[in-house]
Design a protein around this nucleic acid. Structure first.
Lengths: 187, 187
DNA sequence: TTGTTTGTACAGAAAAAACCGTTCAAACTA
DNA sequence: TAGTTTGAACGGTTTTTTCTGTACAAACAA
């Protein structure tokens, strides 16, 4: 088999695996393929480059590169004399993992916390209403407990994301920069 | 406003918030609504109960309760004399968060690790091929570096998931069981 | 055994999304 | 200024996903 073909095949396997797993970041396989393609390119790419590489429309490239940018999986690059926007994958994958939580999960925590606060206030009000049956009150009490549990959980999630952002997580789970020689046959 | 209505409204807000955020678990809003409904029910529910509560088909209830079960967000319950399957939400949300990683992310790590191993072996072979141009070899070298970086990253992710499963994460980010009085107005 | 109940497989309908071609505004060039 | 180039907004089309109703197999009841 031709050497270039072999290299291409080895890359394709990785790209396809990325495409099949990028849903964990809430992205489509197409965006994953785009990411993978950029990953193996050693130069920043323009939208037109991507159109050519992936055989998809420029519009599609534009929208999915935006989705990738929103999650900070890719970033813009500059190159003297090039007017087109250039994009390249963010180098630090650990940071990309953290960014997922900073962006998507933090937003979710915030929405939940807001909803819980509002509902808790309403139930609180309900508890102080004298025109409410004892039976209903005991139901409300149960719900208040549940919401308090939720509130504690999201507060925990919030601190977890803090621990990611502050890189405290690397104290617990250190990055091992093995750089293991690829000819090492040991298991 | 009627007390029962008010309670219902407070619940609906939470349920809808869950529905809008469950995509982080790779589930549809419908499944989220189903989860939310079960969450506020103090008794396990049957598929027929859910059909009635949510106004959707039994088939839908069956498929999405399976999706929820796969992620261990809900579990089966038993009740004397009831022949129908009963389901209830898993009580421990912290564990549910961990399960997400045990199930979905671990699988992703495994797929990636496999692909990386294969591709790395191929590139290794390519490097030892004497019939390959120097130019191509330097390209291959770059890719090997990238794959080694990936390998280290997924190995880190694997250890991170271990830290979740072993509950070591709670040493770094402890669960505060505040149980703060809901009448506390401090900010 | 036969009749009933329950959960799920399957195929088609409905809804949602991904994607494309065209168009347009902004930025750059001359 | 006018002419290009570029990225994205907007409708319309295609593809995918979600949901439903029917049908069926397994478990239970009598």
């Amino acid at each position: 088999m031709d050497g270039t073909k072999k290299l291409e095949k080895a890359r394709e396997r990785i790209i396809e695996t990325i495409a099949q797993n990028i849903h964990l970041y809430g992205l489509t396989p197409s965006a994953g393929r785009q990411y993978g393609t950029m990953f193996f390119h050693n130069e920043p790419l323009t939208l037109d480059d991507m159109t050519e590489e992936l055989g998809m429309s420029k519009t599609s490239m534009s929208t999915s590169v935006r989705a990738l940018s929103d999650l900070k999986l890719v970033e813009r690059a500059w190159k003297r004399g090039v007017r087109k926007d250039l994009y390249q994958v963010s180098e630090d994958w650990y940071q990309s993992f953290i960014d997922l939580f900073s962006i998507k999960w933090r937003k979710s925590v915030s929405q939940h916390s807001g909803a819980i606060r509002k509902s808790l206030a309403e139930l609180d009000e309900l508890m102080n209403d004298p025109a409410i049956s004892e039976e209903l009150k005991s139901e409300v009490m149960i719900d208040i407990d549940k919401l308090q549990y939720m509130r504690a959980y999201y507060e925990w999630l919030d601190r977890l994301i803090d621990a990611f952002e502050d890189h405290d997580i690397f104290d617990l789970v250190p990055i091992r920069n093995l750089q293991k020689d690829s000819s090492d046959k040991s298991k």
